[in-house]
Design a protein around this nucleic acid. Structure first.
Length: 794
RNA sequence: GCCGGGGUGGCGAAACUGGUCAUACGCGCCUGACUUAAAAUCAGGUGUCCCCGCAGGGGGCGUAAGGGUUCGAGUCCCUUCCCCGGCACCA
């Protein structure tokens, strides 16, 4: 027996797999699509540095599933790619001082080397990278389809501006008022931006949750983010301005209690009011001050602030003239940017009324749950009253049922260099003109300075910027903003299905064959970003007839965070442990095994190298014991304890991976089997037990498994069918009967599975130890759990 | 504040649908074997308190705290405490 030398055998098998193209999968020919396609996918990495243990967890998980499904007869697609555009890669380049393309491509080479070192079963023929013109050509092409359908549009809007990264951020990229990437405080600015009309799909995004098998908490996060509220839109008239101002409310039942009216400082009417109001100057100052405040500051302000505008609105229910205020507790982003204030029944309005001594009117008897002081509606239960009031206001043309969402349209233009150019030309005569499909890709131009300077870097290349209008041929200007990299990652899973297609982003046949993704694995931090955007994209592609499904990811699993010293592991924090170094020290198999053995995969963990020695020890033991069992060959051992243990282990491991989707306990189960085998490697059934252990550990530790499989006289374990537990071998003739008295275990005896309940009870009563416990007391009841226990109640 | 998830040995964690003295598997630690020695390896031990002089065995208490349901609760219900995550002036 040779010494276990992980480095040598890992290199050997990685070469064999590559030579034999073991994990490459061909696309089926038209009409020959087989059943049993399985699409396994993990979120693709940003090539912003090297891999860390979080990646190792993510991709090893996917690898175990890949091997398991392959060996269960599935035709498994398991591709890999790089989210190589965008801020993470660009910031890495800025830090290292090179061109983003050079740095990114260097990182990709390094990451691929690390991935290969860990032995992941990846189809390397399907690799894609967002920054590859052959890829972003189709990102641009898809953008044009959205543009045609008016699902991409441009408008001036207040945006989140990161003063450090010098770019606009999506709402999803602002966390607690700070830039998700660099932590700088985000400012509010008004700019022309590109948006995707994801709000048009808000209902579909909610409804189709029922089509997918996702963690409930992820769906909840998305549901909260979309924030659907049912209510009504009511019109309040401001006579002096001759306008009807709509408000959204979920509490139309309280309209009789609306004693004042509030506009957000950003509300379009406020400008007019500043001009015409006697206290316009004060109003103006207030608006300016709130604009300077960050959202967070506004939200946490202890006291409500506001200014009376001098105008009055008419309550459509009472016809009362109520004062119009401007206050920053009303948000322009939600509803209509204006509210009817009901201080009697809304905490915030109440606080505002108290501060500025505004009238308060009770219109709901909270105890009885009925309306009061609401004219003909008084006495009605709240729900009934609400419906009646909306109907009544509807008849008078002052209201209608309405639904409001928290979700905003997705702003995807970025004033940055490292992204896909947005393929449009601005023409003085024709306006926004799409670059024709056959002129794609609009290549990312070279620029003198790609670092952000406050204006889009692309605009500095004037030669590139000037372009003829595709429509009239006149002089036009290219769009200098680039796309958010979340656009790239909203459809990459479809490109993997057909990665070399140069006539379309992908063929519908191949997309429908492989997708939707059967099992997706990635961080929950993408719940309101990537995971929402991809769903939106697929819904649009479905309507365009490009795919036959409405959801991209059928099953979703979130791996936990790998932390170090309590902080999230990431390149930017510099607290990384290089996986390839660990693989050099302990072997890739040990690293893979350890990251999954250390705890449940969906649970956060604090990274520690303590314990990796333990799985190293296990692998060396496995090596020795399997060799001993192979040499000794103790016979079949059918029906014996070792063979039964092996079958039990098969059943446990298969159920854990296949049904429960847990990955730490199967390792423990195989360890148990090896421990039992190790007690006597020449015992009857030892060979079968050894083969079983090797076969079951293969998804986790594929290199050593192949080597040992050979030592056992076989070849190509990666292609061998997954073992099946034999029911006959699992069946027991005897079992250990647990005897309890009043629920406490007092004895155990061997009993036959054939015995009747009465016989088992008789056995229990016969036990000496039970007799001692009973001490002459009378047995009132006997509970029998067949095959397990008898409980005597005295 | 609201909505999730969780609290089990010195540590990472098992116990999947209430049913094998809870703590599998691994780490750490202790003892022994091998060795000149160490490492490695192998064998054994390792919740806690108490009792029987020892060997060996017996018993009580133990899954954040308290209560409940049940023949039987880590698992179900109620109350409280603590930790983690998401949302939060959303009208």
């Amino acid at each position: 027996m040779q010494k276990y030398d992980p480095k040598a055998i890992e290199a050997r098998w990685q070469r064999v797999w590559e030579d034999e193209r073991a994990f490459y999968v061909d696309n089926p020919a038209p009409g020959e699509e087989p059943a049993g396609a399985y699409y396994m996918l993990e979120m693709l990495p940003y090539p912003s540095g090297n891999l860390h243990m979080g990646h190792v967890l993510n991709y090893t998980l996917g690898d175990v599933v890949t091997h398991f499904q392959r060996r269960n007869g599935k035709w498994v697609l398991r591709p890999m790619g790089y989210d190589s555009f965008g801020l993470p890669a660009e910031n890495a380049a800025i830090k290292e001082g090179g061109h983003p393309r050079e740095i990114t491509e260097r990182n990709i080479v390094s990451i691929e080397r690390q991935m290969r070192r860990l032995g992941w079963a990846i189809d390397w023929d399907r690799v894609i990278a967002a920054h590859d013109p052959a890829y972003y050509r189709w990102t641009q092409w898809l953008f044009l389809r959205f543009l045609e359908r008016d699902l991409a549009y441009r408008k001036e809007s207040p945006v989140n501006w990161c003063p450090n990264d010098q770019t606009v951020l999506a709402n999803e990229q602002v966390v607690d008022g700070r830039c998700d990437r660099c932590g700088a405080e985000v400012e509010a600015r008004k700019m022309e931006q590109w948006f995707f009309r994801i709000t048009a799909y808000a209902d579909a995004l909610l409804r189709d949750h029922e089509l997918i098998d996702w963690p409930e908490r992820t769906k909840t996060i998305q549901r909260n983010w979309i924030g659907r509220s049912e209510g009504a839109e009511l019109l309040f008239r401001i006579d002096d301005l001759d306008v009807d101002v709509p408000v959204f409310t979920t509490r139309a039942d309280t309209v009789f209690g609306a004693t004042f009216f509030v506009l957000a400082p950003e509300h379009p009417l406020v400008d007019t009011m500043i001009e015409r109001s006697p206290n316009g100057a004060e109003l103006d100052e207030y608006v300016r001050k709130s604009a300077a405040k960050r959202g967070e500051e506004r939200a946490t302000a202890e006291e409500k602030t506001g200014v009376f505008t001098g105008f009055f609105a008419t309550n459509p229910a009472t016809d009362a003239r109520i004062p119009v205020w401007v206050a920053d507790y009303v948000l322009m982003e939600y509803g209509t940017g204006a509210i009817m204030a009901v201080p009697g029944h809304d905490e915030r309005d109440g606080a505002f009324a108290a501060r500025f001594e505004l009238p308060v009117k009770q219109v709901v008897d909270e105890e009885q749950g009925v309306l009061v002081g609401s004219a003909q509606f008084s006495g009605l239960p709240v729900e009934e009253g609400l419906a009646a009031i909306v109907a009544w206001l509807g008849e008078r043309g002052r209201g209608r049922p309405a639904v409001s969402f928290r979700l905003r349209d997705w702003g995807f233009s970025r004033q940055r260099y490292w992204g896909a150019p947005i393929p449009v030309v601005y023409c003085p005569d024709c306006g926004i003109v799409a670059v024709p499909d056959d002129e794609l890709p609009v290549l990312l131009p070279e620029v003198e300075e790609y670092r952000p300077q406050g204006k889009p870097p692309l605009a500095s290349n004037e030669e590139w910027l000037r372009a003829p209008c595709p429509s009239c041929g006149g002089e036009g200007t290219r769009e200098a903003d680039t796309m958010d990299t979340f656009v790239d990652s909203s459809w990459y899973f479809l490109r993997y299905c057909d990665p070399h297609n140069d006539e379309a982003p992908f063929s519908r046949r191949l997309a429908d064959f492989w997708a939707p993704v059967d099992q997706y694995i990635g961080g929950i931090d993408h719940a309101t970003g990537h995971l929402l955007y991809s769903r939106f994209f697929v819904k649009v592609l479905n309507e365009l007839g490009m795919v036959g499904f409405r959801e991209p990811f059928q099953r979703l699993f979130h791996q936990g965070w790998v932390r170090q010293g309590g902080t999230k592991m990431s390149k930017s924090r510099g607290n990384v442990t290089a996986p390839d170094e660990l693989a050099e020290m302990y072997g890739a198999d040990a690293v893979r095994l350890y990251i999954l053995f250390v705890g449940p995969a969906d649970q956060d963990m604090d990274w520690t190298e303590e314990g990796i020695e333990g799985v190293g020890r296990f692998l060396r033991r496995l090596w020795r014991i399997v060799h001993e069992a192979a040499a000794a060959d103790g016979g079949s051992g059918d029906g014996g304890p070792l063979v039964r243990k092996a079958h039990e282990t098969i059943a446990r491991v298969s159920d854990d991976i296949g049904r429960r989707f847990v990955f730490n306990t199967p390792i423990a189960a195989v360890m148990e089997l090896v421990n039992e085998l190790g007690r006597d490697p020449s015992a009857p059934g030892a060979r079968f037990a050894a083969e079983t252990a090797v076969s079951l550990i293969q998804p986790y530790a594929p290199h050593i498994a192949e080597e040992l499989w050979e030592a056992l006289g076989h070849s190509r374990l990666w292609e061998a069918p997954w073992p099946a537990a034999d029911e006959a071998q699992l069946r027991r003739e005897t079992f250990e009967l647990v005897i309890q008295v009043n629920g406490r275990v007092r004895d155990r005896v061997q009993a036959s599975t054939a015995e009747t309940e009465d016989e088992l009870v008789a056995r229990a009563k016969a036990s000496e130890r039970v007799q001692a416990q009973l001490d002459g007391r009378e047995i009132r009841q006997a509970i029998v759990v067949p095959g397990k226990l008898v409980n005597l109640v005295v």
